[in-house]
Design a protein around this nucleic acid. Sequence first.
DNA 1: CGTGTGCCCTGACAGC
DNA 2: TGCTGTCAGGGCACAC
Length: 271
Amino acid sequence: MPELPEVETTVRGLAASLAGARIERVQLNRADMRRPFPEGLVQRLTGARITGLGRRAKYGLIHTDRDATLVFHLGMSGRWRIDPSAPDKHDHLVLETADHTYALNDARRFGFVDLVDTPDLERWPAFAALGPEPLGPDLTADHLKRALMDRKQAIKLLLLDQGIVAGLGNIYVCEALWHARIEPRKAGGKVSKPALERLVPAIRDVLERSLGDGGSTLRDYAQPDGQLGYFATRFAVYGREDKACLREDGGTIRRFAQGGRSTWHCPRCQR
DNA sequence: CGTGTGCCCTGACAGC
DNA sequence: TGCTGTCAGGGCACAC
């Protein structure tokens, strides 16, 4: 899925035409994605004006003038299709304004949407448990030191925990650990302070460079306007099994499983 | 509490 | 215009 840069890119793409527009029509093509669509979604959104868009972790936010915010999560395969040339069988929710059509498309349906009273957003359960935004001021080596203290789980898995840092996924965790030269299997509590001091800017750098490229793209991700992101061509380790380490240290990128998911790393320079 | 496992779902691809 | 197995950007429920 879409990790933080892809969600941010999606939100910006939607905001370009959706912000300030009025939703004239709402169409549900099925009763649920990962979870049932919220009660009264069509009635509450029809006629609403979009006052702004935002993002928290990997969640996109569409604020309306009815004190309700449409929260969406893209799961693994979700994306918004703007002005699609033809309907698709995985378009589950379709919003129409006077000028555009927005289809939330998600083949695997691991994504979902919810409608939250805007004043209660911070207390929305999934938000209340989130760690700091990696691009904000609260992600520091000190925060990581505290959050990882005494944790025996591998640092790779802990960085996927949204309660420790919000918005990272498999791609950017692998990339950030390579940039910081940290061994992915190392227990979180045993990662040294200097390593954490390297990790924080490494996380920021991979996210910001990806954002600058319009996000990455794999099989089923595209920006709302159909343009592809280019960061995927710049991965150092993700998907580069058996390729040479970009540090030219003679290392070869290897893949192994952690928590049922693939980790790519260079055994030579990540220690 | 922390940790490990399996599952939700469809599609793309490799290999036969 | 096959088949089967594996893997995919996430998150949660569950067992211990």
